[in-house]
Every structure is written in structure tokens, then in C-alpha cells.
Design a protein around this nucleic acid. Structure first.
Lengths: 246, 246
DNA sequence: GCCATGCCAAATGTGCACATTTCTTAATTA
DNA sequence: TAATTAAGAAATGTGCACATTTGGCATGGC
């Protein structure tokens, strides 16, 4: 009934960091994809069963995700998918807005043709995705636009912070669904690029600000829609085929 | 010879999160105070001995600090105090500069007399510390000024990010000693407050930018000065008296 | 004299056996 | 019948016993 261990049953100290990573990535991915509904309990034994690894392995990953504030850890009561409040979401969006204001301020000092060209190409991609109504691609490219902006500064700290904010807001999308159409209007992104080309800091910031406020205004609370799969086996179906029961 | 266990020798599952915290805080504090020199190895057995806790306890804390990028973790080779390059330091300072530009942009929309008053009071404290040549207080207050600025926005995400940057740069001070006089000139802080009072975004940002560039310019590499205590027993001398050998 | 190789001690990584806590369910009582 | 409580089950937390890996050191060869 129980999953069989991979090797002999006695203290197997074989180092396998890749396996940790695999489990971590699998859970993180499910989290980012919104497959794990807010409030769902992530218990150690079932996850160990599903991934075919020891409980301590799961344990370590869960705590790591907790330290990254991606899971809500309660002492002696395990891990749950956090249920962000509307204020939490606003806080993330505001942080992104403030950060981008700083980024743009610094960026106008370093704009060159190569950057403008790169951003323009990206805008084309965004438009293409929009015209063919590819929602998934639109969401992805929309986030990527802002990533391009920070990465143009080449500062690892800032890039990391933005990545953190984006991953956090992507989780929140599953709760506070920001309308059905594309998250970021391509035109607004285009306006930012235009302001950058003109080296107009004030306009760039103003446009960016309006852009974010526009997105924020579309946030609304979905009162407990489809609970999505509560069953973890279903959520992690395609991952880690590993070894079935013999 | 070995530290005695706290209870009976058999699997003691007693939950004691406070003890984890104590060890975490002790090591973090030593790190922030600069008592732990860059490159020093933090091995598990000696730390377990020093703090009088099990090795797994130490292990968990070490990995947590690694996840926070405060320690450099190498698989199968343990934890070391990171040795930041000059570029790393510049990166942190630049991130702080960019972030503060965004903060100021947002802040001028919300300045009120209460805030100005609070900042002015803080400036007075800074001046007092400077006139009595209290270097420790100056460094602390200097960082606190920037903390006041973000916290005025009331955004937890931004506050957390700044705290992260500050704690990181404080560690770096031990390697790249930024001159002997106070880190931030009080006058420069005062100029920021003045610009805020006048609701002048551009000036506030410009002053802030100059301020950071000024600090950055003072960074210089101390070629391997006093190695500070390599002995961990000395570093963690005053902490955790706990229970001596009976 | 210097570099290569093998061995041994020390440190790290991991599964497991518990203790402890929390959750669930059934039984008892007002 | 509803609320309370007690007991069992399940889940979490932790120390320990290993396996594995790394680092240092002595020995031997060039």
C-alpha cells in the first residue's frame, strides 16, 4: 500500500539535490499556475506518497516555501496555501508601481537605441498575442514587459525583487481574477516606451502609474468560485511519474 | 566532554520554536554586527556544541540563512559567510537608490505636516549623535532615516525589501569600510526633507541620488584587515549561557 | 624536492523511530 | 437533541543512526 523506498530501507544518505529541486519546482509551479486553491492544506504524508520521496524531503521543501512567504506555515498545524486579502493584492501592485517609478527614473539615464528596439519588438509580440486572443501568452508577455524594464538596469537585487512581486501577484490572480481580457493593455506599455524614447521621466512615470492604477481598478473579489481540485493527487497528476506501485 | 542533552536521550519531539529563533537571531546578529568575518566557515558540530542544541537545529537555521542569501551554502561543503565583491556592494546601493527614487515619487503625494515633523525630529536626533561623535548611533540613525521614508508609505512589501537591502549593506560595511566619519551626512538627509516639504519630486530625487552616489564613492576595499575572531566560541561568547558542563 | 595516490577522520545529508500536538469521532450527560 | 468531553487516529516536530562525501595527511613514486 505504501510507496516503496528507492533503495534499501536503512539510512540512505545518498545526496540528491536534484530531487529536492524537482519537488520544489513542482509545488511552486502548481502554486503559480493557480492549480492550488487558496486555503488548501498541504499535508506532508500525502505529498510524500505522491512524489515518492521521504517525508523529510517534502518537509524541507514546504518550509522553504514558507520562508519565501509562498505558503502559510502554522506551527504544529502544517502548511496551507495563503488566502491573500484584497489589501495584500493592492500592496503588491502598489509596490510594483513604486518600484517601476524608480526603475524608470534610473532608466532614462541609460536608454539607448538597442533598448528601445528590444522593447518595441516585445510590444509587437504582445500585439500579436492580443490579436490572436491568446490569453495565456498575453498574461505572460505582459509580465515580461516589466521584467525587461528592470533587467535593462542590470541590477540583480532589483530583478529579484520584481520577480518576487510578479510571482506573488500571479498567485493572486487565481483569487482576484482581473477581468477576462488581457491584464495589461498593450497601448499603455507602448506609451511607456514612447516616453522612454523621448527621455521624458515625468511622463514615463505618470503613464506607468496610470497603467498600474488601471490594472488595480479591475481587481475584484471572486466570492469562492469553483474550489478547483482539492485532491492533491489530481493537482500533481502529470508530475513525477517516478515509479508506480509494482 | 560533549554538551549534555536537555532531557532524556531518546527521541525528544518536544516542540520549541523559541529555541530555533534564539539560535537564528544569535547568528544573524553576529552577522549584522560584523563579528563574523567574510569567508568564515560555519560548521554544524561546533555550533551545536556552542549553543547546546542538536545538530539538526543548527542545520535548519543555517539553511534558512542560506535561503535568505545571508550565508553561502555549498552542497556537501557547508555554510560560509559570503565574501561580497565590490560590485555586489554597488548593486545593493544602486538598488537602494532606485527604490528610494520610487518611494519619493510616491511620497510627495502623501506628505503631510505630521510626516515632516517626524522626519525633522529624526534629523535632530541624527545631529545630536553626530555632535557627540557617537558613531554607532549615527550609523543606526542614518539607516533609520531611510526606513522612515518607506514606512511612511505603509507598504509592507516595500518595507521588507528595504530592510533586506539595509541588512545586506550593513554586513558589507565590515568588508568595505565606508570611511571613518558618519555614513550619511545629516545635511543631505535634511535636504531630502526640505524637498519633500516643498513637494518638489525632481529635487527630492536628485538630492537622494547625489546622497547615495556620495556614499558609494566613499566605498573602498580593505585588503584583508584584521581577520577578527576566527574562533566561533569567541564570537558567540555572550550568547546562550544556557547550561554549562555540570 | 614535488606531485600523485590512497587512507582515515570529520562534516554533511537523509531516512527512521519515536514524542508531542492537533484533529476527528464517538460516547456520555444535561 | 445539542453540547461537552474523552479517546483514538493522524499529522507534525526532533533526535539519532547511519551512508556519503569531503578534506587533510602520510606514504610512495618520479
Amino acid at each position: 500500500m505504501a510507496t516503496q523506498r528507492r533503495r534499501n530501507g536503512k539510512g540512505n544518505g545518498k545526496a540528491n539535490p536534484a530531487e529536492d529541486e524537482a519537488v520544489y519546482q513542482a509545488i511552486l509551479h502548481a502554486l503559480l499556475e493557480g492549480k492550488l486553491k487558496a486555503g488548501v492544506k498541504l499535508a506532508e504524508p500525502p505529498l510524500a506518497e505522491i512524489f515518492g520521496v521521504s517525508r523529510e524531503r517534502i518537509r524541507k521543501v514546504l518550509h522553504r516555501l514558507g520562508a519565501e512567504r509562498r505558503l502559510e506555515m502554522i506551527p504544529n498545524r502544517g502548511a496551507r496555501v495563503p488566502r491573500p486579502t484584497l489589501d495584500d493584492v493592492r500592496s503588491v501592485y502598489e509596490a510594483h508601481r513604486v518600484l517601476e517609478a524608480g526603475v524608470l527614473t534610473q532608466l532614462v539615464r541609460h536608454v539607448d537605441d538597442a533598448l528601445i528596439e528590444k522593447l518595441t519588438a516585445h510590444l509587437a509580440e504582445e500585439r500579436a498575442a492580443a490579436t490572436r486572443a491568446d490569453r495565456a501568452a498575453s498574461v505572460r508577455l505582459s509580465g515580461a514587459f516589466h521584467v525587461h524594464l528592470v533587467e535593462a538596469l542590470g541590477n540583480a537585487e532589483l530583478s529579484r525583487f520584481l520577480a518576487d512581486l510578479l510571482s506573488r501577484s500571479s498567485v493572486m490572480v487565481s483569487v482576484y481574477e482581473p477581468a477576462t481580457d488581457s491584464i495589461c493593455a498593450v497601448d499603455e506599455h507602448g506609451a511607456i516606451v514612447e516616453a522612454l524614447r523621448a527621455r521624458d521621466v515625468a511622463r514615463a512615470i505618470a503613464v506607468s502609474r496610470e497603467h498600474f492604477l488601471h490594472v488595480e481598478s479591475r481587481l475584484h473579489l471572486d466570492d469562492e468560485t469553483a474550489p478547483a481540485s482539492e485532491d492533491l493527487t489530481v493537482v500533481f497528476a502529470a508530475v513525477k511519474p517516478k515509479r508506480r506501485k509494482r
